[in-house]
Design a binder for these strands. Structure first.
Lengths: 194, 194
DNA sequence: CGCAACTGTTGAAAATCCTAAACATGGATC
DNA sequence: GATCCATGTTTAGGATTTTCAACAGTTGCG
């Protein structure tokens, strides 16, 4: 066979090359490092990733063993849905309803996840209310700027930047900012609560 | 490289050969027929099934396209659980506790399943057709009266009252009653199909 | 800059795979 | 048994992949 165009042999036998390249990069390996681990040459990996050749299953397996990843996992891996790993600050989605409180979460509510990370901002005077919050799971957070009065069960504390909290969410809790400066904190919930 | 023993290159790159052979047989294809559909030679398939060579991914894909089966499905397929397809009447496992009641189940209770049970009657001459049935899910059944010829993949058996079958529905299957007596059976499907 | 250390890419030769065609075996029919 | 037909296996040779080694580009440092 002849390679007329640079992307000849583009019969895309399932984009092995791209798949391999993505996987390798996800695992933070260079062609040479992976080649060393797998016991093949870096040239082979280069050719495969360019779809210039279609590796034998045994070669592919040797390479994947160096990651390590099974053939089944390799072919099953789906990059499309969860490829949204990084979010810019303005990409966080707002989930709070109170105008004095901003709660932005990382990612969409669509995905099933066990962990939800948030950036919360409490304006001066903001208060989650005397009727204490309560739900299942756990949550924790760290104050980034400003100060906040946090009540958890019978305990109440004023938290300043760098301070943190961690408690079971079924213990009644309340956040309020009686100061004249906004308070920003980073928190995490498990499981997610909206 | 030299092939000293007949099973040289037994590094078992995931038993591609055995896998391919099983899949091919399950779908009731000969090496030549599959080769024709896939556009490769029967010799190639023979060599692959003997693990004498490790096919290139592109070749394997071409072959699987002839089945058809995706690479992901091929490598994911698990043969261990469903290889027990036929059960004799006395192989059914009793699951009832009341000594006055006998409840016998087909197979093991290991897997979680969502089943739909049915009572089916096949009049003499009835036949689901040479174009084998194929759909998602699982199904099993027990013959109550009469006899039935059941084909599942490459296996074919005449089942008599008390005998049973159990297989994954994506394996081609066919029911027919070439006898002069109606056949009644109790079957179950998962997920339910109406 | 010069150099070292790293990256991925290439060309020719060695190793491996795939094809084409012949071979061997088993079952069915006469 | 003889023949036909279908099955899977094998062999030689052309096609493809892999290695080995050299190449080119980038980054970091003295």
């Amino acid at each position: 066979m002849d390679l007329s165009s640079p992307a000849a042999k583009d019969d895309t036998a399932d984009d092995i090359g791209i798949r391999l390249k993505l996987v390798r990069q996800i695992f933070g390996l260079t062609q040479r490092e992976l080649a060393r681990r797998a016991g093949v040459t870096n040239g082979a990996i280069s050719l495969i990733e360019q779809n210039r050749v279609s590796p034998s299953v045994s070669s592919l397996k040797k390479i994947l063993d160096g990651i390590p990843l099974s053939l089944a996992e390799f072919f099953t891996l789906d990059f499309s849905p969860s490829d949204h790993v990084f979010f810019q600050a303005n990409e966080l989605t707002e989930i709070a309803r109170d105008p004095d409180i901003s709660i932005r979460m990382v990612g969409q509510r669509t995905q099933e996840r066990v962990l939800q990370m948030r950036r919360e901002t409490y304006q001066p005077g903001a208060d989650t209310g005397e009727a204490m919050l309560r739900h299942t799971g756990e949550e924790c957070g760290i104050i980034v700027s400003g100060s906040l009065v946090v009540t958890v069960g019978a305990q109440e504390r004023v938290l300043h930047p760098g301070d943190a909290y961690s408690f079971r969410s079924d213990i009644p809790h309340r956040f309020r900012n009686p100061y004249n400066e906004p308070c920003m904190l980073i928190s995490a919930n498990s499981p997610p609560s909206f």
